[in-house]
């Protein structure tokens, strides 16, 4: 049986295999700036041990329970490597570089090397791909986290006056970002008990139908909660686009500039600003 043959080989020649494997990795290039050879060695040793145990139980199904420790170890390793800045091929090379020493052993020791080689090759390919997958998964998670924190950073809600909030939007808006803006603004309205909120889009280069709809939805949602929204800073091109797109602004209050909107908001709150010199 190839499974037991491979397990036996791994067990009997553990020392030599380990030495040759580490050498193979060194030849393929170890990122000495990120990891020392000692760690590589101990990682390799750990995987070799786990592999020996798992291989004895059968090679065919990586989903079966006895492969869990091996997968767990590769998972941890790939994830930490992806966070440390290794490339995906460097991560996969860890497993693939075991091929050369292992194949050499099989060639030397087995009566029917082709069959065993094929099985060993299939196994290492699967494990290598598994490494790449967890590496990618971890990368995607990082990207998602960064996207979220960037979106939060880019949407500050500021209090201009007791009861008046403003959210200056800068940069292009997609539906995802507009949605986050909307939620942040409405949360802040409740938190600060503000009756008025100014959405300033001076820094927004273009507005498409989706974004216009989202802005409208925000205004309607705020109204449902008992607050009023004013949209300010609509540039001429955007005004033209909104009309062209046929978006019905309905009874949404719009002002040309943030200053105008602020003035109107103060008026709504019955606040009057008087110049100190004009007596």
């Amino acid at each position: 049986m190839p499974a037991s043959v491979i397990a036996e080989l791994l067990q009997q020649h553990e020392r030599e295999l380990l030495d040759e494997w580490v050498t193979a990795q060194r030849l393929a290039g170890i990122r000495t700036d990120l990891v020392d050879e000692e760690t590589v060695r101990s990682n390799s040793q750990e995987l070799l041990k786990l592999l020996t145990v798992a291989a004895a139980e059968g090679l065919d199904d990586l989903h079966s329970a006895h492969w869990t420790p091996v997968k767990g170890m590769l998972d941890r390793l790939s994830r930490s490597q992806s966070r440390q800045g290794f490339t995906s091929s460097e991560t996969a090379t860890f497993v693939f570089s075991l091929k050369e020493p292992l194949f050499a052993r099989i060639q030397a020791q087995c009566a029917n090397p082709v069959e065993v080689l094929w099985d060993a090759s299939k196994l290492l390919d699967k494990l290598g791909l598994y490494c790449v997958e967890s590496y990618m998964g971890s990368r995607e998670a990082i990207i998602r986290e960064q996207q979220e924190s960037m979106l939060e950073l880019s949407t500050p809600v500021v209090e201009l006056w007791k009861g008046i909030l403003a959210i200056p939007l800068i940069g292009s808006l997609d539906s995802n970002r507009t949605q986050i803006v909307m939620e942040a603004l409405l949360e802040k309205i409740v938190q600060t008990e503000s009756d008025l909120a100014i959405i300033d889009i001076t820094g927004v280069p273009t507005v498409d139908t989706m974004v216009a709809q989202h802005l409208l939805k925000t205004v309607t949602a705020a109204k449902l909660m008992g607050a009023k929204c004013i949209i300010s800073g609509i540039r001429p091109q955007i005004a033209a686009t909104i009309v062209h797109l046929g978006v019905e602004l309905g009874d949404v209050v719009t002002k040309a500039s943030l200053a105008d909107a602020f003035q109107m908001a103060l008026k709504e709150l019955n606040v009057r600003l008087v110049s100190a010199t004009a007596r």
């Binding site: 939620e183 309607t220 949602a221 705020a222 449902l224 909660m225």
Partner: peptide, 18 residues
Amino acid sequence: VVGMQPAVAITLVELGLS
């Protein structure tokens, strides 16, 4: 009607109820 939660308001608007 007072005190509608933001998440509820957003959902209502999406549902099509104003």
